[in-house]
Design a protein around this nucleic acid. Structure first.
Length: 282
DNA sequence: AAAAGCAACAACCGCCTGCCC
DNA sequence: TGGGCAGGCGGTTGTTGCTTT
């Protein structure tokens, strides 16, 4: 029985795996391990490729936008790292999981609360997410300021401005749906958004500097909406029609757990417990 | 300068699911 | 239909490198 190697990969092993996959493609992983001459399990080869060696993997720190998306999606889906990772092109479930454990769980620990508690979820909703939006805005402002003083930065800023603005417009508001006046006050005007419809194309609106794919989140919302049971849609409609904002502006809000409603291109909601997102389409 | 502590990341493990025979 | 296998997923552990004392 052949010795199976464990532990850190060597450069030689990496080269063997890359060369083999370049020629023959990915999987089946057990035969990849064998044919590439690696004394590793198929699982180990798969993990090494998907998490580290694949050209699709993005290296480097998570951007503010990516951090926002992770928090946002974790509120919605919990520890479903793979599903969350699908919304962040180039990022792996392992990377996101590590980010959560090292950064977010640490903050929960400092606050003396369980990372999965409602208390900490509230902290994410009401503090961490808004703070990230502020930071994203500040970053955008800084780039804008830089562009004013440095003509060579103009192009960069224009790219960033475009993507950042769209990002902010789409992430919208953080409110407590138990207080609809708060929702109304925090309502973010997105009337300037011109190509919202493109979000559903799944193509991404930008190849922006952060790599953030604006399409990903909304596309998935749409997919989820299609999967909703009919009765759930009816329930969402009830909430929608009951909204005090619905009559005023053709839009509304609800508070159904993890409920998504999409009504054909005019408006939609994502409701995560008491965390409401509210948006309209132009 | 060295040791301890800590954060970040890479990798493994075990369970689950889906597919094929 | 059920057993075996491969692959995917989330939890956990090990390692490394940086910071602090």
């Amino acid at each position: 029985m052949e010795f199976i190697r464990k532990g850190p990969w060597t450069e030689e092993e990496d080269s063997k795996l890359i060369n083999y996959i370049t020629i023959y493609g990915e999987g089946p992983w057990n035969s990849v391990a064998q044919c590439a001459g690696l004394n590793r399990t198929g699982k180990s080869c798969r993990l090494r490729w998907l998490n580290y060696l694949s050209p699709d993997v993005r290296r480097g720190n998570l951007t503010l936008q990516e951090q926002f998306l992770i928090l946002h999606l974790h509120l919605r889906w919990g520890n479903r790292w793979s599903k969350i990772a699908q919304q962040l092109p180039g990022r792996t479930d392992n990377e996101i999981k590590n980010y959560w454990r090292t950064r977010i769980q640490k903050q929960a620990k400092q606050l003396n609360c369980d990372v999965n508690s409602n208390e900490f979820r509230g902290t994410i909703r009401n503090f961490l997410l808004p703070r990230l939006v502020d930071q994203i805005q500040a970053e955008s402002d800084a780039l804008s300021s830089m562009a004013e003083h440095d003509s060579s930065a103009t192009e960069t800023w224009m790219i960033a401005s475009s993507s950042q603005q769209q990002f902010l417009e789409k992430q919208l508001v953080f409110t407590d749906c138990d207080n609809d006046h708060v929702l109304a006050n925090n309502w973010l005007n997105i009337s300037s958004l011109t190509d919202w419809g493109g979000c559903f194309g799944g193509t991404g609106l930008t190849s922006d500097i952060s790599g953030f794919n604006n399409a990903c989140c909304e596309q998935d919302m749409f997919d989820d909406a299609e999967e909703e049971e009919e009765e759930e849609e009816e329930e969402a409609m009830e909430y929608r029609n009951a909204s005090p904002l619905a009559a005023a502006g053709g839009s509304g809000w609800g508070s159904v757990d993890t409920m998504l409603y999409y009504d054909g291109g005019e408006e939609g909601y994502i409701n995560n417990n008491s965390f409401d997102y509210h948006y309209t389409f132009n």
